[in-house]
Amino acid sequence: MNNSQTTRRVTGTVTTELNRYGAMTLRSENDRTYQIVDCAAPDVAEELEQLRVGETVTLTLTAAPCRGNGWQATGVDANSRTDTRLVA
Rank of each mutant, 00 (worst) to 15 (best):
A45P: 09
S80F: 11
L86D: 02
I36V: 14
T82L: 04
G75C: 07
G68T: 00
R67Y: 00
A88M: 07
T56W: 12
C39E: 03
E49H: 12
L59K: 14
W71Q: 09
G54E: 02
T60N: 13
V37S: 13
W71I: 05
L48Q: 12
V37H: 07
I36F: 07
V87I: 05
C39H: 06
C39A: 10
V87W: 07
D38M: 08
A88W: 08
N69I: 00
S80A: 09
A88G: 10
V44N: 05
Q72I: 02
L48H: 12
D83F: 09
G54R: 07
T74Y: 03
T62H: 02
A73N: 07
A41T: 13
D77N: 15
T74W: 03
I36D: 02
A73T: 04
Q50N: 04
G70V: 09
P42G: 02
D83E: 07
N69R: 06
V57C: 06
L61R: 15
V76C: 08
C66Q: 05
V57Q: 08
N69A: 01
P42R: 06
R81S: 02
V53M: 07
A88Y: 09
V76W: 08
L48C: 11
E49C: 03
N79W: 07
E49I: 05
R85P: 04
D77I: 06
T74N: 10
L51W: 10
L48R: 15
N69Y: 04
A64P: 03
G75D: 12
A45R: 15
R67D: 00
E49Y: 12
R67I: 00
T82F: 03
A64C: 06
D38L: 10
A40Y: 05
P65L: 00
P65A: 00
T58R: 15
S80C: 07
G75K: 15
T82C: 01
R81F: 03
A78H: 10
R85L: 01
S80M: 11
A88P: 13
G70E: 10
A78V: 06
E49S: 11
W71F: 13
N79H: 13
L59E: 08
G75A: 13
A45D: 12
D77T: 12
E55I: 09
A78E: 10
T60A: 09
Q72V: 02
G68N: 02
G54A: 03
Q72L: 03
L48G: 08
W71K: 12
G68R: 02
R81L: 05
R52C: 05
E49L: 08
P65Q: 01
V87A: 04
L61I: 11
I36W: 06
L86W: 04
N69E: 01
Q50C: 01
V87M: 04
L61G: 11
C66H: 04
E49V: 05
G70Y: 08
A64R: 09
A41F: 11
Q72P: 01
T82N: 04
D83C: 07
V37C: 12
W71R: 12
P42D: 03
L59R: 14
E46N: 14
R67E: 00
R85W: 05
G75M: 09
E47H: 15
V37A: 13
L51Y: 12
G70I: 10
E47S: 15
V53R: 14
T74A: 05
P65I: 00
L86S: 03
T58A: 14
D83P: 12
R81K: 15
V37T: 15
Q50T: 02
L59T: 09
